[in-house]
């Protein structure tokens, strides 16, 4: 792990630290909202450690706190997390093998996948992925515990504009990849499809549907069978 710190340049570390901090604040609100909604402290805390996927956790506690069935909450959460399959296929080499695989898979988030994809070589990708993943895991869980204990300190992170900060984080990180015209076309088509599907489908599915944009990803060689 020490080599990871040596490969990571200070600028990247600062960027990652900022994202971890922001995730910690969202964790605060998640903990506070869960307990405020009438759930016991252990529910948001356990979810954060063993599930560790923000969007699905918000959805889960939202459904359960509103009196919904835990089964429905589980299904909804799994649907939202299904995009991790595609992320895993993309960052498999970055995660590594042996003990790194289960651990690295567990700390997989949108943010550290985006950070990894934005780096040039494998060493840098690994460093960005692991530092960001572990950093978010630590900050998120600390935030959740504090939020759940303190109750209503911060329940509405929209006041700070954090709901705008997270899409901006991901946008800034994928922008370099979008300079490639074929990738840009696929991403654009996929985003339009996801937006069009959002009013009609449960959370998680619209983003997954965006993968149809890959049909528009044409290579110079006619090897389209590999897409399917």
């Amino acid at each position: 792990m020490r080599s990871i710190w040596r490969t990571t340049d200070p600028g990247l570390l600062r960027d990652i630290a900022l994202v971890c901090l922001a995730d910690g604040v969202v964790g605060l609100s998640y903990g506070a909202i869960s307990v405020g909604g009438g759930l016991d402290l252990w529910v948001p805390v356990l979810l954060s450690i063993v599930v560790f996927a923000g969007a699905s956790q918000f959805l889960f506690v939202g459904i359960v706190a509103a009196g919904g069935s835990p089964i429905a909450a589980t299904v909804a959460g799994l649907l939202v997390n299904s995009r991790h399959v595609a992320f895993g296929l993309a960052v498999s080499d970055v995660i590594g093998s042996g003990w790194r695989r289960p651990l690295g898979s567990h700390v997989m988030t949108d943010e550290n996948v985006a950070f990894a994809l934005g780096q040039d070589d494998l060493r840098q990708k690994r460093a960005a992925y692991w530092v960001c993943g572990i950093g978010i895991f630590v900050c998120w869980n600390i935030g959740v515990v504090i939020g759940a204990l303190a109750g209503s300190v911060i329940t509405d992170t929209d006041v700070f504009g954090l709901d705008a900060a997270f899409p901006a984080v991901l946008l800034a990180l994928v922008l370099p990849s979008l300079r490639d015209k074929k990738t840009r076309t696929a991403a654009l088509v996929g985003s339009v499809v996801a937006l069009a599907a959002t009013p009609f489908l449960p959370a998680g599915l619209p983003v997954l549907l965006a993968l149809v944009g890959l049909v528009f990803y044409r290579s110079d060689k006619p090897a389209l069978d590999a897409v399917r």
Partner: peptide, 18 residues
């Protein structure tokens, strides 16, 4: 294509979250 798929998903996340 796998790498592009991840970018497409992240872009769609940006669009829907924004």
């Amino acid at each position: 294509v796998m790498a592009v798929a991840a970018v497409v998903l992240l872009a769609a996340l940006v669009a829907t979250a924004a």
